[in-house]
Protein backbone atom coordinates (compact mmCIF):
# COMPACT_ATOMS: atom_id res chain seq x y z
CA UNK A 1 0.00 0.00 0.00
CA UNK A 2 1.26 3.41 -0.89
CA UNK A 3 1.76 5.78 2.03
CA UNK A 4 3.62 8.62 0.42
CA UNK A 5 3.48 10.13 -3.03
CA UNK A 6 5.90 12.81 -4.13
CA UNK A 7 4.68 14.72 -7.19
CA UNK A 8 6.95 17.07 -9.16
CA UNK A 9 8.61 18.48 -6.09
CA UNK A 10 11.13 21.27 -6.63
CA UNK A 11 13.00 23.32 -4.12
CA UNK A 12 14.61 26.65 -4.85
CA UNK A 13 16.81 28.30 -2.25
CA UNK A 14 17.30 32.03 -2.20
CA UNK A 15 14.73 34.74 -2.79
CA UNK A 16 13.03 34.96 -6.14
CA UNK A 17 14.54 38.31 -7.00
CA UNK A 18 18.11 37.62 -6.05
CA UNK A 19 20.56 36.24 -8.57
CA UNK A 20 21.83 33.77 -6.02
CA UNK A 21 18.94 31.38 -6.54
CA UNK A 22 19.82 27.74 -6.26
CA UNK A 23 17.62 24.86 -7.31
CA UNK A 24 18.33 22.09 -4.83
CA UNK A 25 15.57 19.73 -6.07
CA UNK A 26 14.34 19.55 -9.62
CA UNK A 27 10.94 18.13 -10.29
CA UNK A 28 11.23 14.96 -8.29
CA UNK A 29 8.47 12.36 -8.26
CA UNK A 30 8.30 8.93 -6.61
CA UNK A 31 6.11 6.77 -4.39
CA UNK A 32 6.84 5.11 -1.08
CA UNK A 33 4.94 1.98 -0.14
CA UNK A 34 4.22 0.72 3.32
CA UNK A 35 6.97 -1.37 4.85
CA UNK A 36 9.69 -0.25 2.51
CA UNK A 37 13.22 0.42 3.69
CA UNK A 38 14.59 2.92 1.22
CA UNK A 39 18.10 4.31 1.04
CA UNK A 40 18.88 7.68 -0.51
CA UNK A 41 22.40 8.18 -1.79
CA UNK A 42 24.23 10.83 -3.71
CA UNK A 43 27.21 13.15 -3.66
CA UNK A 44 27.47 15.82 -1.03
CA UNK A 45 25.27 18.80 -1.91
CA UNK A 46 23.06 16.79 -4.23
CA UNK A 47 19.92 17.61 -2.24
CA UNK A 48 19.43 14.56 0.00
CA UNK A 49 18.85 16.48 3.23
CA UNK A 50 16.64 18.95 1.40
CA UNK A 51 14.51 16.08 0.14
CA UNK A 52 14.26 14.48 3.54
CA UNK A 53 13.30 17.75 5.19
CA UNK A 54 10.54 18.25 2.67
CA UNK A 55 9.27 14.72 3.18
CA UNK A 56 9.28 15.33 6.91
CA UNK A 57 7.47 18.66 6.38
CA UNK A 58 10.26 20.48 8.20
CA UNK A 59 10.71 22.41 4.99
CA UNK A 60 8.21 23.35 2.28
CA UNK A 61 8.68 22.54 -1.40
CA UNK A 62 8.76 25.50 -3.79
CA UNK A 63 6.48 23.69 -6.22
CA UNK A 64 4.91 20.24 -6.37
CA UNK A 65 2.70 18.19 -4.09
CA UNK A 66 3.25 15.80 -1.27
CA UNK A 67 0.53 13.33 -0.49
CA UNK A 68 0.70 11.31 2.67
CA UNK A 69 -2.05 8.94 3.69
CA UNK A 70 -4.19 10.28 0.86
CA UNK A 71 -3.89 13.80 2.18
CA UNK A 72 -2.17 16.67 0.44
CA UNK A 73 0.10 18.16 3.08
CA UNK A 74 1.59 20.93 0.97
CA UNK A 75 -1.31 23.24 1.75
CA UNK A 76 -1.26 22.84 5.53
CA UNK A 77 -0.45 25.67 7.89
CA UNK A 78 2.63 25.68 10.08
CA UNK A 79 0.78 24.44 13.13
CA UNK A 80 -1.13 21.80 11.20
CA UNK A 81 2.19 20.59 9.89
CA UNK A 82 3.56 20.42 13.42
CA UNK A 83 0.68 18.17 14.42
CA UNK A 84 1.14 16.11 11.28
CA UNK A 85 4.84 15.66 12.07
CA UNK A 86 4.18 14.71 15.65
CA UNK A 87 1.63 12.07 14.65
CA UNK A 88 2.90 10.53 11.47
CA UNK A 89 6.64 10.94 11.26
CA UNK A 90 9.61 9.87 13.33
CA UNK A 91 12.98 11.51 12.86
CA UNK A 92 16.48 10.23 13.43
CA UNK A 93 19.25 12.78 12.84
CA UNK A 94 22.94 12.48 12.29
CA UNK A 95 23.72 14.35 15.50
CA UNK A 96 20.98 12.57 17.47
CA UNK A 97 19.23 15.80 18.43
CA UNK A 98 18.36 14.70 21.93
CA UNK A 99 17.61 17.45 24.43
CA UNK A 100 20.59 17.51 26.76
CA UNK A 101 18.46 18.83 29.58
CA UNK A 102 16.51 15.61 29.78
CA UNK A 103 17.31 12.03 30.61
CA UNK A 104 17.05 9.52 27.77
CA UNK A 105 13.77 8.35 29.18
CA UNK A 106 12.30 11.83 29.21
CA UNK A 107 13.59 12.43 25.70
CA UNK A 108 11.91 9.30 24.45
CA UNK A 109 8.50 9.92 25.97
CA UNK A 110 8.51 13.60 25.07
CA UNK A 111 6.40 13.20 21.90
CA UNK A 112 3.80 11.27 23.92
CA UNK A 113 3.80 13.80 26.75
CA UNK A 114 3.19 16.58 24.28
CA UNK A 115 0.32 14.59 22.83
CA UNK A 116 -1.20 14.30 26.30
CA UNK A 117 -0.90 10.58 26.96
CA UNK A 118 -1.43 9.12 30.42
CA UNK A 119 1.66 8.27 32.43
CA UNK A 120 0.78 4.57 32.53
CA UNK A 121 0.40 4.34 28.79
CA UNK A 122 3.65 6.20 28.23
CA UNK A 123 5.57 3.93 30.56
CA UNK A 124 4.19 0.79 28.97
CA UNK A 125 5.14 1.92 25.51
CA UNK A 126 8.52 3.07 26.69
CA UNK A 127 9.28 -0.18 28.46
CA UNK A 128 8.52 -2.42 25.54
CA UNK A 129 10.43 -0.30 23.03
CA UNK A 130 13.40 0.32 25.29
CA UNK A 131 13.58 -3.41 25.90
CA UNK A 132 13.52 -4.18 22.19
CA UNK A 133 16.16 -1.58 21.44
CA UNK A 134 18.34 -2.61 24.34
CA UNK A 135 18.68 0.66 26.22
CA UNK A 136 16.65 -0.15 29.28
CA UNK A 137 19.60 0.00 31.62
CA UNK A 138 20.59 3.54 30.69
CA UNK A 139 17.20 5.22 30.56
CA UNK A 140 17.86 7.45 33.55
CA UNK A 141 21.11 8.82 32.19
CA UNK A 142 21.57 12.13 30.46
CA UNK A 143 22.67 12.20 26.80
CA UNK A 144 26.14 13.44 27.70
CA UNK A 145 26.61 10.47 30.00
CA UNK A 146 26.25 7.80 27.30
CA UNK A 147 28.00 6.93 24.02
CA UNK A 148 26.98 8.17 20.60
CA UNK A 149 25.63 4.76 19.65
CA UNK A 150 23.43 4.73 22.72
CA UNK A 151 22.24 8.24 22.06
CA UNK A 152 21.28 7.26 18.55
CA UNK A 153 19.37 4.26 19.90
CA UNK A 154 17.48 6.55 22.21
CA UNK A 155 16.75 8.83 19.28
CA UNK A 156 15.43 5.81 17.39
CA UNK A 157 13.25 4.97 20.38
CA UNK A 158 11.88 8.50 20.37
CA UNK A 159 11.17 8.28 16.64
CA UNK A 160 9.38 5.02 17.15
CA UNK A 161 7.32 5.64 20.25
CA UNK A 162 4.42 7.35 18.51
CA UNK A 163 4.08 4.46 16.03
CA UNK A 164 4.76 6.75 13.08
CA UNK A 165 3.90 5.73 9.52
CA UNK A 166 7.21 6.94 8.28
CA UNK A 167 10.65 7.11 9.81
CA UNK A 168 13.11 9.52 8.24
CA UNK A 169 16.78 9.09 9.04
CA UNK A 170 19.42 11.54 7.83
CA UNK A 171 22.81 9.87 7.90
CA UNK A 172 22.07 8.17 11.20
CA UNK A 173 25.39 6.33 11.19
CA UNK A 174 27.38 9.37 10.16
CA UNK A 175 28.76 10.07 13.62
CA UNK A 176 29.09 6.48 14.80
CA UNK A 177 32.01 4.12 14.82
CA UNK A 178 31.61 1.05 12.61
CA UNK A 179 30.49 -1.25 15.42
CA UNK A 180 27.78 1.14 16.67
CA UNK A 181 26.86 1.91 13.06
CA UNK A 182 26.31 -1.77 12.37
CA UNK A 183 24.26 -2.15 15.54
CA UNK A 184 22.06 0.74 14.54
CA UNK A 185 21.49 -0.61 11.05
CA UNK A 186 20.47 -3.93 12.48
CA UNK A 187 18.16 -2.04 14.77
CA UNK A 188 16.57 -0.21 11.84
CA UNK A 189 16.14 -3.51 10.04
CA UNK A 190 14.51 -4.89 13.17
CA UNK A 191 12.22 -1.88 13.42
CA UNK A 192 11.33 -2.18 9.77
CA UNK A 193 10.51 -5.84 10.16
CA UNK A 194 8.91 -6.04 13.60
CA UNK A 195 7.21 -2.67 13.81
CA UNK A 196 6.28 -2.61 10.15
CA UNK A 197 7.70 0.88 9.97
CA UNK A 198 8.48 2.44 6.63
CA UNK A 199 11.98 3.86 6.66
CA UNK A 200 13.69 6.36 4.42
CA UNK A 201 17.38 6.67 5.19
CA UNK A 202 19.91 9.07 3.71
CA UNK A 203 23.42 7.69 3.74
CA UNK A 204 26.64 7.91 1.87
CA UNK A 205 27.97 4.72 3.35
CA UNK A 206 27.71 1.76 0.99
CA UNK A 207 27.70 -0.69 3.84
CA UNK A 208 24.75 1.11 5.42
CA UNK A 209 22.95 1.30 2.09
CA UNK A 210 23.26 -2.45 1.62
CA UNK A 211 20.75 -2.94 4.47
CA UNK A 212 18.02 -1.25 2.42
CA UNK A 213 15.54 -2.89 0.08
CA UNK A 214 15.83 -0.14 -2.45
CA UNK A 215 18.27 2.68 -3.15
CA UNK A 216 17.44 5.99 -4.81
CA UNK A 217 20.43 7.82 -6.23
CA UNK A 218 20.26 11.57 -6.46
CA UNK A 219 22.49 13.87 -8.44
CA UNK A 220 22.13 17.63 -8.75
CA UNK A 221 18.64 17.53 -7.35
CA UNK A 222 17.33 14.85 -9.68
CA UNK A 223 16.72 11.14 -9.30
CA UNK A 224 19.49 9.54 -11.25
CA UNK A 225 18.87 5.86 -10.75
CA UNK A 226 17.15 3.26 -8.56
CA UNK A 227 18.43 -0.08 -7.37
CA UNK A 228 16.54 -2.96 -5.75
CA UNK A 229 18.13 -5.47 -3.45
CA UNK A 230 18.00 -9.01 -4.65
CA UNK A 231 18.62 -12.15 -2.66
CA UNK A 232 22.33 -11.81 -2.97
CA UNK A 233 23.62 -9.20 -0.59
CA UNK A 234 27.10 -9.20 -2.02
CA UNK A 235 25.84 -8.51 -5.50
CA UNK A 236 23.67 -5.64 -4.22
CA UNK A 237 26.70 -4.17 -2.50
CA UNK A 238 28.73 -4.33 -5.70
CA UNK A 239 26.08 -2.74 -7.85
CA UNK A 240 25.78 0.16 -5.38
CA UNK A 241 29.50 0.75 -5.75
CA UNK A 242 29.13 0.61 -9.53
CA UNK A 243 26.42 3.25 -9.59
CA UNK A 244 28.33 5.45 -7.21
CA UNK A 245 31.44 5.35 -9.33
CA UNK A 246 29.43 6.44 -12.36
CA UNK A 247 27.65 9.06 -10.25
CA UNK A 248 30.97 10.59 -9.38
CA UNK A 249 31.47 13.27 -6.82
CA UNK A 250 33.08 12.79 -3.50
CA UNK A 251 31.79 9.98 -1.45
CA UNK A 252 31.74 11.82 1.81
Amino acid sequence: MQILRVENVSKVYGSKKSSKQYMALKNISFDVNEGEFIGVMGPSGSGKTTLLNILGSIDKPTTGRLIMDHRDITGLSKDQLAVHRAKKIGFIFQDYNLLETMTLKENIILPLALAGYKTRVMENKLNSIAEDLGIKAILDKYPYEVSGGEQQRAAACRALITNPKLILADEPTGNLDSKSGKDLLELLTFINREYKATILMVTHDVFAASYCHKIMFIRDGEIYNELYAGDDKKQFFDSIIDVLSVLGGERI
Partner: peptide, 15 residues
Protein backbone atom coordinates in the same frame (compact mmCIF):
# COMPACT_ATOMS: atom_id res chain seq x y z
CA UNK B 1 18.87 24.81 19.19
CA UNK B 2 16.68 22.82 21.55
CA UNK B 3 13.61 24.66 20.31
CA UNK B 4 14.73 24.06 16.75
CA UNK B 5 14.92 20.38 17.53
CA UNK B 6 11.56 20.35 19.24
CA UNK B 7 9.99 22.00 16.23
CA UNK B 8 11.43 19.28 14.06
CA UNK B 9 9.69 16.62 16.08
CA UNK B 10 6.40 18.46 15.96
CA UNK B 11 6.21 21.28 18.51
CA UNK B 12 3.51 23.69 17.42
CA UNK B 13 3.80 27.44 18.02
CA UNK B 14 1.01 27.32 20.56
CA UNK B 15 2.74 24.64 22.63
Amino acid sequence: HQYKMLRKIGLSTEI
